[in-house]
Nucleic acid binder design. Structure first.
Lengths: 210, 210
DNA sequence: CCCTTCATAACACTTTTTAGGTATTTCATC
DNA sequence: GATGAAATACCTAAAAAGTGTTATGAAGGG
């Protein structure tokens, strides 16, 4: 278990948030903010040496995507836990972050007490996340034959798949995406072929699990 | 946090399992088995007074369903955590248990170390459960318009719905359930009517959420 | 400039699904 | 014993989905 203070690093480009977090952490028992970074580049250099317990990493950084930063850092600092910091609960980004190696995420609007709790949870091997995200994670990490849609489907195909998931008919999807129904059918067909399935439901099961 | 020992009560009618659990718990650091019950009636009487930290409750008890017992006890002993004990991973029962107030469940075949871990998790506010069940729970508690299938669909309709969810065709479902395809179609039609939808995917979205 | 991928679209054809109407049997309940 | 819910099953028909094939223009990499 952690013997003493939990050392936390912050990577955040917005000053108010950055300083607010540092203040919160430094003034809380058992926590200390060891360092702050305003961009990914500096963070990459500094964090490989400092190795804090936890890094609060903003997803939207000016120079580099926070997700990429985590992917790189997690390779080099295996013991450091990464918590993504984000404004809104963007499924895709959060999910990608977790795949990149983050252990959880916190919304920037999260109450101070809950931020500390989230950090503690991560240190204790937990993963603070909403049940929405948990669902995606569960589906992805535990499901035998769930597939990572992002790596085999083209952007348009993913759009079509989303509409298919809603239960819309080809005609309705065509209207929604402003293409002809034939195009929708072609996309659907290509999706099915890539996923090696023969129906909408099978495709959804493969991609979203169940 | 819990200051000392975690007190665990056991409600289980099968002697070998009951005694095995007691032995395990009493011989583990930080755990103590405060009491054992062989049926629900005795448990109801005893537990309201003893208030252990955790109750391991068998789902299949001779006199009363363990789920009902939890429903009643959770009212009176709000702080006590209930973990359902079950032989096989029966979605419906486990789900009902969680609705009744249980915090998690453990399979009887679970390895001793994992049983202790599960108990610890529950005490720490966690919910030991497979990702399968977690998904149902999440869907049920978080989803806007998900419908409680159990209260409007007949048993056979629920079976058919499950098969529809797998992406099977009517013909395949007919084979699986040993009825004619026409029967499957009738069931599907009735399901759709009850759920007020017009397609398989819509039905699945309503019931299982997404 | 060629090659590949992607988005778009069309045509023909088959299979599956959905919709509506009926009917029989069983089983529990009143 | 009537009533009603549930499971079973058949018929017809239309709508939707899935399969095979082909084609064109745009974008990007080599």
């Amino acid at each position: 278990m952690q013997n003493d203070m939990i050392t936390v690093a912050i990577v955040e480009d917005i000053r108010e948030i950055r300083e607010g977090l540092k203040l919160l952490i430094d003034n809380s028992d058992g926590f200390t903010c060891s360092e702050v970074y305003v961009n990914a580049e500096d963070a990459l250099k500094g964090l490989v040496l400092s190795r804090p317990d936890v890094v609060l990493m903003d997803i939207n950084l000016p120079d580099m995507n926070g997700i990429e930063a985590v992917r790189i850092l997690k390779e080099k600092c295996g013991d450091t836990q990464f918590i993504m910091s984000t404004v809104y609960e963007d499924d895709t980004n959060i999910f990608e972050s977790l795949k990149a190696g983050a252990s959880g995420y916190l919304l920037k609007k999260t109450a101070p007490a809950n931020i500390l709790q989230g950090i503690t949870e991560v240190v204790n091997g937990g993963s603070p996340m909403s049940t929405q995200i948990a669902r995606k994670v569960i589906a992805s990490f535990q499901k035998k034959d769930s597939i990572d849609e992002n790596e085999i489907l083209t952007p348009k195909e993913k759009e079509v798949l989303k509409s298919l998931a809603k239960g819309l008919r080809y005609k309705e999807i065509a209207g929604e995406l402003n293409v002809s129904m034939e195009t929708v059918r072609t996309h659907a067909r290509n999706i099915y072929e890539k996923l090696q399935v023969q129906s909408r439901t099978e495709a959804l099961n493969k991609v979203y699990g169940r």
